[in-house]
Design a protein around this nucleic acid. Structure first.
Lengths: 142, 142
DNA sequence: TCTACAACTTCTAGCAGCTGTAGGTTCAAG
DNA sequence: CTTGAACCTACAGCTGCTAGAAGTTGTAGA
């Protein structure tokens, strides 16, 4: 039986985060000691590892909820899990494209800065005048 | 003189966001009509455009605050603005590297999914077992 | 067995950067 | 003068945690 601290350490999670996952129903309510402290078994360890790994791959908590549900029903079609992963892949590729455009623009800004006074700063100038950009970056980006 | 709605439309911002920027001191308190409605001039339009453009390039509101301050003092050295932009470029490049690793992993997951039952789903399997990953993705990523 | 103290407990608030809603007021066109 | 879109304030909510306060439990060493 693992304490919440041990479970957290084993999965690279903060204790508060484990409790948060329990609160939002992503982790089950675990058994407790007489004094009221949480104790976990291997099933919970596996589940939390799954969650953390999916988070590392950028899945949202909602997506993870779906994936966990699918994982809990081995007879279901794999298609749904596949769709979720594909959706995530699309998102990642979309963000990649955006970031690449941003990198280009930032590089250009930085490159053109001659190091004088802010009155002539290319960085500020580009920010002031959108028309100087080579790419469109309409969406909020990060 | 522009209403807040017109200002918002011209800069691709939501009305609430403009008020939010005012609240956090990123935008100045504008003049008001007798009835209490905000009215903006060209200076505010320029400033908001600057802010939005910087947001699109992924700068944080704090970074933007600094950039605005530099922009307001044309005699200052350009070095600070340059440093902020370089910092931002570094962040973008870091995120790019992460996302590229994620894309690789997601592609592999999706590619290997044969479309059967969830019991044999590669997507879920990979999530369950981190050791199947080719890359390390320790940080939270997206 | 006692003591010390790390680790646990709940509760609440805060972070970024907005976004949405409720309930009311103002402005401008017809 | 009426209508109704757009404005006003104030505050709650979003994601995914994270930090702090104030108090309790578990366990190792003396």
């Amino acid at each position: 039986m693992l304490t919440i601290g041990t479970l957290a350490k084993k999965t690279g999670t903060k204790v508060q985060t484990v409790r948060y996952y329990e609160q939002i129903g992503l982790m089950p309510e675990p058994g407790r000691t007489e004094g009221g402290q949480r104790r976990y078994g291997d099933a919970e360890l596996d589940r939390l590892s799954f969650v953390r790994h999916a988070r590392q791959l950028g899945f949202s908590l909602d997506a993870i909820r779906e994936l966990l549900d699918l994982s809990d029903h081995p007879g279901k079609s794999c298609a749904e899990a596949d769709a979720i992963a594909r959706r995530q892949l699309k998102q990642v590729e979309h963000r990649l494209a955006r970031l690449e455009a941003l990198r280009t623009e930032l590089k250009r800004m930085v490159h053109e800065c001659s190091g004088g006074q802010t009155a002539d700063c290319r960085v500020l100038e580009v920010l002031r005048d959108h028309s100087e950009c080579l790419t469109n970056h309409e969406e909020i980006g990060g």
